[in-house]
Computed example of a mutant assay.
Amino acid sequence: MTNATATDKHPGELADVPGWFPPLDQTLFTWFLDRQKKAGIKGDLLELGVYMGKSAILLGHHLQDGEQFTVCDLFEGDAPDEANKAESSKSYASLTQQAFERNYLSFHDSLPTVITGPSSLVDEKVAPDSCRFIHIDASHLYEHVYGDIGAAHDILLPEGVVVLDDFRSEHTPGVAVAAWEAVLNRGLRPICLSTQKLYATWGDPEPLQEELLEMLRQRSDVGLSLQEAAGHRLIRTRSRGMKPPPFPPSRHYVEPVATPAPAPQVAESRAAHPAGPAPSRARRLAKDLLPPVITRAVRRARAKRS
């Protein structure tokens, strides 16, 4: 994870929004959401922890008619405990609800439903078995992630997909413990792993994995490997210079002004300089025939007259 600097400017493109959302994960989000649409899977979307809205903006682009999108974040609110307060002060001091809403509305006509507060409020606000896609990127503390996974289990549809951020980062061991504990003891079944996120379901992952492998094997910009662990097939993916998928620009996008190309350098030649009048044939003959002594005398006489 690298630092993402907040900005007060309206973003012109998704890349202008601060946040940690690599091209590989943008590609995987897009693939899962598009596949759900093609398969006729309907359901709401949910994101826990939005930061400046980068992944939320992409999620909102995939809303279908009649679906709801809910986001939850502390923003400037009080954390539920001292550990969470310390984490928020260290990593998210620049986060404000105003900044999130400004960025989101640059790309969309209306805001999602916003829950301002800890993610523990979500299971009170979002109905069970209502969501097809959930992104968990809130607190990194074990107790909170454990609760977020439990809430996601109740809220997610049987064929839905849940994504856990920072499941393997060295500075977020609580997420790793909660994530793999859910795999081993709480019925969560991995679909694939990116460098940053774990994609999983409580349904059958095999059909998703087969289709995903078919797509990934056609790309040269993704590193791909398969492993087995504790009875689970793990698809590991990593970027090989991947570019983010196409995404519509914001309403504030300004087309870059093309810089005019410098004029080509033309080598000077004799033709570029007009030549003086050619000497007459008689003068050329006189110059060739007169002895050098006479020629020098003629030049001196001319110089005296002038």
Score class of each variant (00 low, 15 high):
T7P: 08
D8G: 08
E13P: 00
L14E: 06
P18Q: 05
G19F: 14
Q26L: 04
Q26T: 08
T27V: 10
L28C: 01
L28I: 11
T30E: 03
L33W: 01
A39G: 07
G40Q: 01
G40H: 01
G43V: 12
D44K: 02
L46K: 02
V50I: 00
M52H: 15
H62S: 01
Q64T: 02
E67Q: 03
F69A: 04
K85S: 04
S89R: 15
S89I: 11
K90F: 13
Y92C: 03
S94A: 12
T96S: 08
Q97V: 06
L105K: 09
L105M: 03
D109C: 03
D109T: 07
P118Y: 06
V122C: 03
P128H: 10
D129P: 02
D129Q: 15
A151G: 00
A152W: 07
D154N: 09
I155L: 09
P158I: 06
V163Y: 04
F167M: 01
H171R: 12
P173L: 03
L188G: 01
I191R: 10
C192E: 05
L193M: 10
T195Q: 15
W202H: 02
Q209A: 06
S220L: 10
V222G: 05
S225W: 13
Q227Y: 13
A230L: 08
R236W: 15
T237E: 01
M242C: 01
P244R: 06
P245Y: 11
H252Y: 15
V257N: 05
A261L: 14
V266R: 14
A267D: 05
H273I: 10
R281Y: 13
A282H: 13
A286N: 07
D288V: 14
D288P: 09
L290N: 03
R299E: 10
R300N: 04
R302W: 14
K304L: 14
